[in-house]
Nucleic acid binder design. Structure first.
Lengths: 108, 108
DNA sequence: GTTTTATGACGCAAACATACGACATTGTAT
DNA sequence: ATACAATGTCGTATGTTTGCGTCATAAAAC
């Protein structure tokens, strides 16, 4: 019942990026990280209406796809956005949107 | 266990768009619709490695969020992309990407 | 050295998504 | 009218995601 692999690599890739953005908590985390210029660690959880454990899991997903990086700082953890990845994300999505612009306007 | 509504309307919105794009089949459908300038109906299923029923469900989701429109044509169904929605999608995603550009480069 | 603190990993339950066969509906062809 | 075709809906099985409590670990404070 896992048919994902039957599709194009490109399509799978885009789907993966989209999936990471498909939960408001993860979007909120990214925006929070962008806003706090001190790149604060797990008081990210304090800013979200979710338990620390749950936020930790979302952070993990963001890290796995590379959108954020985390560096240990004593007991605490300092997360921050990865510029490069955000640029890549931008590229992938704008390429996709371009790819689905209808080329033939009289079609419908 | 449904905490989605605890987030910002904007965040929820973006998440919804992203969710629709989070499956390769739906991406494939959009790209197929963009490529076939005749906006053909359910032989979309013939182009995908999934059953007709499953494709029908994906089409429904795309239609619900407004990315595609369907018009009855006798027994057949003619689906096509909705330009306006694609433009909106573009806007939403590029706004988001802009919103997470780190403003303070020395941060990390 | 013991306690406190911040964090991640593990395991579970509820909710949701995916995939599909069987059926219903509606339009066309005979 | 009857048969056939294209499509959507329903029910269901299986897989995945979300959310969280509990535990383990490791740095810091005492």
């Amino acid at each position: 019942m896992k048919k994902l692999e039957l599709f194009d690599k490109h399509q799978q890739d885009l789907a993966k990026w989209a999936k990471v953005l498909s939960h408001p908590a993860r979007i909120a985390i990214l925006q929070y990280l962008a806003s706090c210029n001190t790149c604060i660690s797990g008081d990210i959880s304090d800013h979200l209406p979710l338990s620390r454990t749950t936020v930790s899991q979302h952070l993990k997903e963001l890290k796995e796809i590379g959108l954020i990086k985390g560096e240990v700082e004593g007991l605490k953890m300092r997360y921050c956005l990865d510029d490069k990845a955000i640029e890549a994300l931008n590229q992938i999505f704008s390429d996709f949107v371009t790819s689905i612009q209808p080329q033939n306007k009289e079609c419908c």
